[in-house]
Simulated assay, not measured.
Amino acid sequence: MPTFFFLILLLLPNLPQPEPDINQSPKFNVIAFYTAENDLAHISFVNEANEWFPKMAEKHNFSYESTNDWSNLNADFLSQYDVVLFLDTRPEDSAQREAFQTFMENGGSWMGFHFSAFALTPSAYPQDWDWYHNTFLGSGEYKSNTWRPTSAVLKIEDNNHPATKELSETFESAPNEWYRWENDLRENQDINILLFIDPSSFPLGTGPKPSEIWHNGYYPVVWTNVNYNMIYVNMGHNDMDYEHKYDSNQTKTLSYTFDNETQNELILNSLLWLGSVSSQETSVK
């Protein structure tokens, strides 16, 4: 190789690199709603999510904001955003629920985590929103869960979906509390199950209650509804040092949802897909 070209190759890594265009418009806008007041594991997850998503937003050119003011769930506010996240809970006010349903029925996108699908009658979160739990999510009420939060081997049901197509057929998740639902999602033609718990995970959970340890069964953990731009992800419950709990600000987090690279890829793929399909003509006025 001529000396001149060899020297150019040596100097290339030191040449100034173009600065990212800070004035470039974001590809899509995300707003995350959360409550973060009850379960310490959910609070831990919300705090973690509100650190991780802004990093992804900067890297992948979308905007991310979060709020614990659920009164913002209205037509005017939502008109600024393409994707809504529910990080832990759901809206309880009827006007907020109506605004969210209208947003989704007019091309908006949504991703929900873990407790955002919870409903149990009687409880502080009863099943009193039929559209959301039966039509939109399709899951109906919560029925049971595993305990303690543990990892599971997850298996892809649909590897053609943008959220899963680049993932390995099975992978081990971050520790989580896994939910079982009232409805069999396999029987709902509107539901596309993307991931379920692989049988190699059983027994799943450590108890102490026998019902908190699953030995068999089919458990969907990520799915979409083909009638909406949406995806539900059952992950979102960190393991906490409950045995030594004495202060909500000092209770130790023992596991982190976003410490798992493959699971992160799933979540990021899901969000980028939702951002790409969200209608730019969404109208909730």
Rank of each mutant, 00 (worst) to 15 (best):
A95H: 10
V83T: 07
V84G: 01
F86C: 14
W70A: 07
S79R: 13
S63I: 05
Y64N: 01
H60S: 00
Q96D: 04
S63T: 10
N68I: 02
S79M: 09
H60Y: 10
Q80W: 01
N72Q: 14
D93E: 13
N68F: 14
N68D: 15
S94D: 14
Y81K: 12
W70P: 00
Y64W: 13
F77T: 10
L85G: 05
F86A: 15
D76C: 01
N68Y: 11
Y64D: 02
S79K: 15
Y64H: 01
Y81P: 02
T67S: 14
E92Y: 12
D88L: 06
E65D: 05
N68S: 15
L78A: 07
D69F: 12
S79H: 10
N74W: 07
K59N: 14
D88M: 04
Q80L: 09
L78R: 10
S66E: 13
A95N: 08
Y81A: 10
F77Q: 06
L78C: 10
V83D: 05
W70L: 11
S79D: 15
N72F: 12
E65W: 03
D93Q: 10
Y64V: 09
D69Q: 02
S94T: 14
H60L: 05
L85S: 02
S79P: 02
L73G: 01
K59W: 09
E92Q: 01
D69N: 15
P91V: 07
A95E: 05
F86S: 15
E92L: 04
L73H: 07
N68P: 05
L78M: 13
S71N: 15
A75W: 10
Y64G: 02
N61E: 01
S94N: 11
T89D: 15
S79A: 15
D82A: 12
D69P: 00
L87N: 02
S71C: 13
V84N: 07
S63D: 08
T89Y: 15
A95D: 10
Q80P: 00
Q96E: 11
L73N: 08
E65C: 02
D88I: 06
Y81I: 13
A75R: 08
D88G: 04
S66G: 03
Y81R: 11
P91F: 08
Q80F: 13
T67V: 01
W70V: 02
E92R: 12
A95M: 06
F86K: 13
S63H: 14
P91I: 11
N61C: 04
N72K: 09
F62E: 04
N74K: 13
V83C: 06
N68A: 14
S63F: 12
L78S: 11
V84H: 11
L85Q: 03
F77S: 06
D88Q: 01
D82I: 03
P91A: 11
A95G: 00
F86H: 11
S71D: 08
D88Y: 07
Q80T: 02
D82S: 15
D88H: 05
V83Q: 04
N68W: 13
E65R: 12
E92T: 07
P91E: 07
F62C: 07
L73I: 06
L87C: 06
Y64M: 07
A75L: 01
L85M: 08
T67H: 14
T89N: 15
T67F: 07
S94A: 14
S94H: 10
S94K: 14
N74Y: 03
